[in-house]
Amino acid sequence: MSAPRFSSLRPAAPGDGPALGELDRATWSTLHAVQPRPQPPYEPFFDDRHRPEDILVAEAEAEAEAGGVEVRIAGYLRLARPTPLACNAHVRQIQGLAVAGWARRHGVARALLHAAYAEARRQGAGRLTLRVLGHNSAARALYEAEGFAVEGVLPGEFFLGGRYVDDVLMGRSLTS
């Protein structure tokens, strides 16, 4: 398969739920997931806490299995308020980022991050935070390259794959 050609970034639509759920299951790994591997019957991707308006979707043109080219969901980013508190309304949090295997290393994650900065600013946020597992060095390197700094570490917070893993709290300003 040739390299995907980035097509667009857009807000999720309710009809994206099945494809986003499939992407979420396909990218599941103890490198970034603290929940057990999803098993059938699968929960819907969207629910009261995970709404389409909180999801940014990246699309890319890729070779179709039957030949030709099709536009497919290449990744998503969930951007939400970390709490419902008014005193914390200036903060948005990345609560999920996934890129399809066929679309990795083509700038999809970085494009989603840049779209998240713009959307968070549009919503009035001045700060963006996230949590990443300590052993996910590729994600940590991307976030650091994008201006996120480690603001805290919860040592051994999770037991995954037979070992204790740190929960790393990162953040960055959206005003500078």
Rank of each mutant, 00 (worst) to 15 (best):
A64G: 14
V150D: 13
L169F: 15
R37H: 12
A118W: 10
P4W: 08
F46C: 02
E43C: 00
F6T: 00
Y117L: 04
L113W: 07
L128I: 06
L112R: 06
Q123S: 08
V99R: 04
A141Y: 08
P4Y: 01
A12V: 02
P40G: 00
L130H: 08
D54Y: 11
G124T: 05
A120G: 03
V150T: 15
A120Q: 08
F159K: 06
G126A: 11
G107M: 13
A138P: 14
V69L: 15
P84N: 09
D47E: 03
A19L: 05
R51Q: 15
G126Q: 13
E146M: 09
V168C: 10
G75T: 09
F45A: 04
G147Q: 06
G17N: 03
R81P: 01
F6N: 05
L169G: 01
D47A: 06
A60K: 01
L113R: 01
E61A: 11
F148C: 03
Y76P: 00
G156H: 12
G124M: 08
G67D: 04
S7G: 03
V91K: 11
R127E: 13
H135Y: 04
F46H: 02
A115D: 09
E43A: 15
A89K: 13
D166W: 03
E144A: 15
L113K: 00
G171S: 15
P52Q: 04
A64L: 03
T30M: 11
P14Q: 11
A66N: 12
L133W: 05
A74M: 09
G124N: 02
G156A: 12
L97G: 02
P14K: 00
P4L: 15
G147R: 09
E22K: 13
A125C: 15
G15R: 10
A26F: 07
V108T: 11
A13W: 11
A111S: 13
R78P: 00
C87D: 12
P41V: 02
V57D: 03
W102Y: 07
E119P: 02
L169A: 12
L133R: 01
Q123L: 15
L154R: 13
A12Q: 08
R92A: 09
V57G: 04
R37P: 07
L133G: 02
V91A: 06
Q39W: 06
L77T: 10
M1T: 10
S137C: 00
A141H: 11
E61R: 13
A145R: 15
E151I: 01
V99P: 10
R78I: 05
L31A: 14
F46E: 05
P84Y: 03
L128S: 06
L130F: 09
G162D: 14
L160E: 07
T129H: 10
A86N: 08
G17M: 01
A19V: 11
R104D: 07
P155T: 08
E53I: 02
Y143C: 03
I73F: 03
G17E: 10
L20C: 01
L133I: 00
G67V: 02
P36K: 05
S8L: 12
L130M: 11
R140D: 02
Y42M: 00
A13Y: 10
A26S: 15
P41S: 07
G75D: 10
L160K: 04
R72L: 11
P11K: 07
E22L: 13
T129I: 14
E146G: 08
G68P: 08
C87M: 11
W28H: 12
G156V: 01
G68C: 09
D16P: 06
T30V: 14
Y164D: 02
